[in-house]
Design a protein around this nucleic acid. Structure first.
Lengths: 203, 203
DNA sequence: ACACATCTGAACCGTACGGTTCAAAAGTAA
DNA sequence: TTACTTTTGAACCGTACGGTTCAGATGTGT
């Protein structure tokens, strides 16, 4: 008979690229050029994939970008969860800032942070992407606030400081560091600013 | 005879728009949408000018943007020079942060700061604009460094703090505040973070 | 009323964009 | 070898972009 179809799942021509590697290449392009500044040709060129492979594997440009955001959170940005798992508020804050400097200044990838580089302002038609990035950044703040509120409950934070305010200040500094990195500040320069912040902010 | 031409400078149809008002409108568009996200139609629409008026008055999109940068420095960003003229380092720093919050959260104009919103990452072909913005931001940092170095020379700064590091930290916080404003943080929220920064950074 | 300089509106140009489609190639399992 | 499924490359589509041009409208100074 006609219907032989043994194992449909494994039939057909296999992919010539690895999905996560392609995503990684796309991440770098978005990181460097921003969402709006990235063209499909930029993407297919970096991912070494043609348009239809991109389309069938990831969907359109926006869907790809959202996949990249996920991958970025789980990969390059994973130091944040690591830092948040440290035992004391002081350790968390110090690790966040130090690791941010190390991360932002790493010459192995584009400067700055995708959560900012990807798109801060957007033209008409990309409002949803812009909003997604706002939500993304706010989620990071919320995580830190939660961690510091726990610290407060554990008596791990001076009475004088409100955990929500402190969390916001730390995020401000982290984001500001991202701008500095784009401006070409060296890790040493950024670390000296962080020294000052940490020695002031005696927790 | 033919050559009557009395005062060539004042002849011809006068402009139906004021140059600075048009610039102001363009500023808001770039501020909101970024350089790449802004189309010529966005600009002509907001400026109530047609393309040829824009072209003949300001040159192309990039030249207009550079004019806008100048206007922005002289206008919305003038609080920086005001702050830098204050007498003590402490007053300078406090004014910079407080005025930044007030400025960034002002509902009378787009959120954030043009020096960041205008373009942090750029696609191919706009590298020069991106570089101009990097230079712009670095110039702001240099101004502040200079002022704080003067403070140090005047014995107006604790021995422990390097004026260049302090300047960078202040810029980091100012830039970070700009991101917060875009994220929708209220002036009150930003001010509480600034409270914390200022009370920590006892100068 | 006149001549003149300048501005204005609208059309046009070439290019690049994001998105989509489809025949042909390619590899797998029987 | 054969049947079958998926990927691949390239072409195509409509749209919007930034930039440019030009004939005609408009206000000025004489």
């Amino acid at each position: 008979m006609a219907s032989v179809k043994a194992n449909p799942a494994k039939m057909g021509r296999p992919r010539s690229f690895r999905e996560d590697e392609a995503l990684d290449a796309a991440m770098r392009v978005f990181w460097q050029k921003g969402y709006e500044g990235t063209s499909l040709d930029d993407l297919t060129g970096a991912m070494k994939i043609n348009r239809s492979s991109l389309y069938s594997t990831f969907g359109d440009k926006e869907a790809l970008f959202r996949r990249v955001m996920k991958q970025y959170s789980a990969g390059p940005l994973s130091f944040m969860s690591e830092a948040l798992n440290l035992k004391t508020a002081r350790a968390v804050v110090e690790a966040l800032l130090r690791m941010s400097v190390k991360f932002l200044g790493d010459p192995g990838h584009p400067p700055g942070c995708l959560s900012i580089q990807g798109g801060l302002a957007c033209g008409s038609g990309n409002e949803e992407v812009k909003q997604a990035m706002v939500d993304w950044r706010k989620a990071g703040l919320a995580q830190l606030q939660k961690r510091l509120q726990r610290a407060r409950a554990e008596g791990d934070l001076r009475k004088g400081v409100d955990p929500k305010d402190l969390a916001r200040l730390i995020m401000i500094v982290m984001n500001g560091l991202g701008i500095q990195a784009v401006n070409g500040a060296t890790p040493a320069e950024m670390n000296r600013a962080v020294d000052l912040a940490l020695q002031s902010l005696r927790l």
